[in-house]
Amino acid sequence: MILDVNMLNIMLLIFVIPISLLFEGLRRKLMARMQNRIGPPVWQPVYDVMKLLQKEESDSKASENIFFKITPFLYLITTFALFLFVPFPIISFPFDFILFVYILILGGALYILSGFASNSPYGSIGSMRETTLMVCYEIIFAIVIITFALYTNIESLMSFNQNFLFLKLPLASLCLFIVGLVEMRITPFDTVEAPTEIIGSVETEYSGRGLALLEISKALKFTFFIFLITMLFFGFKGVLMFSIVSLIMLFIFTFLQATTCRYRLDQTFNLLIFVLLLAVIELIRINYLVW
């Protein structure tokens, strides 16, 4: 196992929560500008989280459930742990990307658990939707990561050093992009958290600190996927180029959210099955067919 501790890594780990909240604020601001609105200040998510952390939690039947209480913490920890590997890996050992995929799935499982533990019909439906979709998109994610690893012939994410891979692996990149949309809850694939259909899904029963932790985790996951896509697609190691490309990706995602509407659950599922097929084709292609 190699520990690569330098200034950049540590700074990123310390400031990753403010950075993700800033990204969330930027997303809101950009969204508002695209919709002809002024929008909230860029630091609004920070104020929201600070306020929520100070508030007491509402007393509901669900709060007796131990899983309901601890899952937001665990969810935050698992999401935070993803930043150990992406974009500037700190820990490295052979085949660490398998652990990395596992951590992502663990986060999804905790999200589902908190929904079922919240004792609310909307939470249960949200968890049900997430379960249905997870069957599909986590497999795609795993296949895509393995495809990237096989193609670049790396043992761990630290030795990843190829630029502009999205031109060489177009199908796998497309699949990763779509999985990103599902995980980041961006239209047309934000079926899990459709507010006009099932209110807040898993977040419905949460309040105060629990809700704040969920909000932070959501922002972290959003930032994580932007970093991951920037890292795997473009592979820039310099901080400046990396930040610029990340902001461009943020703009693209916001633009997508502003200009599309949401698919229904069964439509999303059918589409994901098709995406799974694409991912498998790409995996076969890089192994047996010469480009």
Binding site: M31, Q35, R37, T196, A258, T260, C261, R262
Partner: peptide, 10 residues
């Protein structure tokens, strides 16, 4: 209702 917030604003 189907998630197209931009159109609502317009």
């Amino acid at each position: 209702e189907i998630g197209f917030e931009t159109m609502l604003a317009y």
